[in-house]
Amino acid sequence: MQNELRQTCRRLLEEGTVQVVIGYGDGTDGQTFPTFVTRRDDVERLVWNERCYTNLATYLTRPEILALGKAAICVKACDERALVVLEKESQIDRSQLVVIGLACSTDGVKQPKCEACENRTPRWANVTIGDAAGETAKTTADRYAALQAFMQKTPDERMAYWKTELARCVKCYACRQVCPLCYCRQCIADKNRPVVISTSATLKGSFAWQITRAFHLGGRCIGCDECTRVCPAGIDLRLLNLSLARAAEENFNFRAGVDVEAEPIVGAYSERDREEFIR
């Protein structure tokens, strides 16, 4: 599969279809990291294995990467959903992008999110490499199992939980920087004339930041869980995202990034909207 990936990328670069391939490169100890291949002979650096965690879609809105030219991007099925949202929100031009879909093996990439994975093969890629046989259908309950378990706690217990967890937040903003959908040129957390969200890594400041972050991703978060994976303090941010994703599904029958036809619930206008105030 890795060879097929390299050959595909070599061809794309040779033909001049793209100027850069955004993929995974080999790191130490079998870890992988994002890599940007601009010369065909460098395709040998590309790898595909069960440790390709990063959702590379986050690079598609970065000026440093856009400057490299037309891109081909490697995505797993979960990452691919970010492309759907980015396109709906007019952040990327799909015609100027080659999407290389990477099908996950039965083991997936061994992250907590993989337990609820329902399709391991990307669906809208220009080229798909590998095939993931034996996909298992998942129910709504499977998707929100982690949240459901958490919601068994009383509100007081949940508040105590978040106080313990967010006390460790140092506001490094890794959650924001890694997120493919946190692409704002100026984040509200950086607004300082006047300050909207306290920059202090206090309980108050961290609650304000994490709640705002979750709300801004309501109906938009595609559940790649990158925020949770990269948090140096080990805060399970996924629970916040799941909560809003479930609200979107229950109330609007909407799941971000799974249907290319569906209009986003935030940002789409319809005269048939059921709410009076918006019509």
Binding site: E64, V170, C172
Partner: peptide, 25 residues
């Protein structure tokens, strides 16, 4: 450094990084 995402995880977990900002709240 092309892959740097621009977060502060390195600096905030570094034993020697010491930059700070002064804020009024």
């Amino acid at each position: 450094t092309l892959r740097c995402l621009g977060c502060g995880a390195c600096a905030y977990t570094c034993p020697t990084c010491h930059c700070f900002d002064i804020v009024d709240e």
